Amino acid sequence: MKSIKRYYTLKAAPADVYNALTNPRMLEIWTGEEVVMSTEAGTEFSLWNGSITGLNVEFEENRKIVQQWFFGDQGNDSIVTIKLHPDKKGTSVELIHTNIPDEAYENISDGWDEDYFGALRELFI
Rank of each mutant, 00 (worst) to 15 (best):
residue 18 Y to T: 00
residue 34 E to I: 14
residue 47 L to G: 01
residue 14 P to H: 01
residue 4 I to E: 00
residue 31 T to H: 01
residue 72 G to C: 03
residue 63 R to E: 14
residue 7 Y to F: 10
residue 89 K to H: 13
residue 77 D to E: 03
residue 48 W to Y: 04
residue 73 D to G: 11
residue 65 I to R: 11
residue 4 I to F: 00
residue 84 L to D: 00
residue 80 V to Y: 01
residue 109 S to G: 04
residue 21 L to V: 09
residue 78 S to Y: 00
residue 71 F to Y: 14
residue 86 P to A: 01
residue 9 T to D: 11
residue 49 N to F: 02
residue 8 Y to D: 09
residue 4 I to V: 00
residue 21 L to P: 13
residue 46 S to E: 10
residue 48 W to F: 06
residue 9 T to W: 11
residue 64 K to E: 06
residue 11 K to G: 04
residue 83 K to R: 15
residue 2 K to I: 00
residue 35 V to F: 02
residue 62 N to I: 03
residue 121 R to G: 03
residue 30 W to S: 09
residue 51 S to K: 15
residue 121 R to T: 08
residue 57 V to W: 03
residue 22 T to V: 12
residue 61 E to C: 10
residue 1 M to I: 01
residue 19 N to C: 15
residue 18 Y to D: 08
residue 78 S to R: 02
residue 73 D to V: 10
residue 82 I to K: 06
residue 5 K to N: 08
residue 69 W to G: 01
residue 13 A to I: 04
residue 115 D to F: 13
residue 30 W to D: 13
residue 18 Y to L: 07
residue 66 V to K: 07
residue 88 K to L: 10
residue 71 F to G: 05
residue 58 E to C: 07
residue 40 E to A: 10
residue 105 Y to G: 08
residue 50 G to M: 03
residue 125 I to P: 15
residue 50 G to W: 00
residue 70 F to V: 09
residue 59 F to N: 05
residue 16 D to M: 12
residue 12 A to L: 03
residue 22 T to E: 14
residue 110 D to Q: 15
residue 57 V to Q: 09
residue 3 S to H: 06
residue 17 V to T: 01
residue 102 D to C: 06
residue 7 Y to L: 15
residue 29 I to W: 06
residue 110 D to V: 12
residue 42 G to I: 04
residue 25 R to K: 15
residue 37 M to D: 02
residue 65 I to W: 09
residue 29 I to D: 13
residue 61 E to M: 11
residue 78 S to F: 01
residue 23 N to E: 10
residue 125 I to H: 15
residue 92 S to Q: 15
residue 54 G to P: 13
residue 91 T to S: 05
residue 65 I to N: 10
residue 35 V to A: 02
residue 98 T to L: 11
residue 105 Y to N: 11
residue 124 F to W: 09
residue 11 K to W: 05
residue 32 G to K: 05
residue 121 R to W: 01
residue 115 D to S: 15
residue 26 M to H: 07
residue 116 Y to I: 10
residue 10 L to C: 00
residue 52 I to M: 11
residue 111 G to D: 10
residue 101 P to T: 12
residue 40 E to S: 12
residue 30 W to Q: 11
residue 112 W to D: 08
residue 45 F to R: 07
residue 93 V to T: 03
residue 90 G to L: 03
residue 56 N to S: 07
residue 40 E to P: 06
residue 54 G to A: 05
residue 41 A to S: 09
residue 29 I to K: 14
residue 94 E to K: 06
residue 31 T to G: 08
residue 41 A to Y: 05
residue 45 F to M: 12
residue 36 V to Q: 15
residue 99 N to S: 13
residue 123 L to H: 10
residue 115 D to H: 14
residue 56 N to W: 09
residue 14 P to A: 01
residue 61 E to V: 14
residue 46 S to G: 08
residue 25 R to T: 13
residue 123 L to T: 14
residue 115 D to V: 07
residue 107 N to V: 13
residue 109 S to T: 03
residue 59 F to Q: 05
residue 22 T to P: 14
residue 43 T to A: 10
residue 44 E to F: 07
residue 43 T to Y: 05
residue 85 H to V: 08
residue 39 T to H: 06
residue 11 K to C: 04
residue 73 D to L: 12
residue 87 D to W: 02
residue 74 Q to W: 02
residue 95 L to D: 04
residue 64 K to M: 07
residue 118 G to H: 10
residue 117 F to I: 06
residue 117 F to M: 14
residue 53 T to Y: 03
residue 11 K to R: 14
residue 52 I to W: 01
residue 111 G to V: 06
residue 106 E to P: 12
residue 15 A to R: 09
residue 14 P to Q: 01
residue 66 V to T: 02
residue 110 D to I: 11
residue 27 L to M: 14
residue 82 I to S: 07
residue 26 M to D: 12
